[in-house]
Design a protein around this nucleic acid. Structure first.
Lengths: 175, 175
DNA sequence: CCTGTAATGTTCTACTTCATAACAATCTGG
DNA sequence: CCAGATTGTTATGAAGTAGAACATTACAGG
């Protein structure tokens, strides 16, 4: 029922009153559920958008059964073959402890492998397997298409640039 | 060690080369860790910004020991006294099953209370307690200050409006 | 009226993410 | 050599999230 402005004269005010205590709910309390005090908050909208984008990402990558973090790890290994676990973990702000299970999964699926690092017997050198490299091509194509989707939603690359700039303004780590 | 620009001439190039294949790692492989393929993604930056904002929120609200979801629930109850649990859960996209523990905590802290709803004996009517109302004033002040912070980071209310619009473009639920 | 269906709140369970602590092996600088 | 830092790993706990199942209650159609 969209506000029914026509019936306004039928009732005796209390619509625009600031805090009528005498209103006394007439029959069916016409309480519109107010959410503006929450939905108007930057952080709330930011979270909503982030969830929506990640959900769409998972839809696009469902055929690969990979999460955003998995894709990021594979992409970073592809761009930095032989890198250490800690390097990727730091770049993605993942605790190195939690990175272990992640890379274990990728390795178990035959996408990555750990070799012995040359100058440091503590660290492992990460590489994509041949299968991993081949998979990465399809992943990159999917990601590029998804990014194009996002850019289109935003209204073009200029809007995207504005958007990234605004995001970075909020993302600075100063408490 | 801040980049040591003074020692630059000491080495033989490969710094600004685009993709020298012949460089052959001289002694210490000076591999810059490449992250652009991930950090350039809209979703990645969106997540970064969201995490940063939520972390700052938690800092600002640490004295109250309340999370964003707690604040949202209290704000919605304040704006919609007598509302049902399911209404708030739907508004915040929380499963009603998970809402129970949340509202139980707030009730245990004496901030909210459940009364019997008038026309429906299944649902509960949620209200702020007097203590809850008083607390809410401080919370609102803190939130308003935090929102002002965010707006300032973004560059003003006009930038904020642009930002919210861009967020909403990404947040639409069409798969 | 009765009855099947839907809604509401609740409990329980499981999965994922994230953070911390602890440990062994290794590296580094003095 | 040695103290301290780094790397990978395991284990553990907190928190968010999703689903199933249940009891109680509303509601609409016969």
């Amino acid at each position: 029922m969209p506000r029914a402005a026509g019936r306004l004269p039928q009732f005796k005010g209390t619509w625009l009153m600031t805090d009528t205590g005498t209103a006394r709910e007439t029959k069916k309390a016409r309480k519109r559920f107010r959410t503006d005090s929450v939905t108007g908050i930057v952080g709330y909208r930011l979270r909503r958008a982030q969830l929506a984008v990640f959900q769409r990402f998972q839809l696009r990558f469902a055929e690969f059964d990979l999460r955003p973090a998995d894709y990021s790890v594979l992409a970073l290994i592809a761009d930095n073959p032989g890198c250490k676990q800690i390097e990727i973990a730091n770049a993605l702000r993942i605790k190195r402890a939690n990175f272990v299970a992640l890379i274990n999964r990728l390795e178990a699926r035959g996408l990555t492998e750990r070799r012995e690092a040359v100058g440091d017997r503590r660290s492992q050198a990460l590489y994509l397997t041949p299968v991993g490299s081949e998979t990465m091509q399809a992943l990159k194509a999917t990601q590029d298409a998804f990014e194009a989707e996002c850019i289109e939603k935003l209204g073009g690359v200029e809007a995207r640039d504005v958007f990234l700039d605004l995001l970075d303004r909020l993302a600075d780590e100063t408490p």
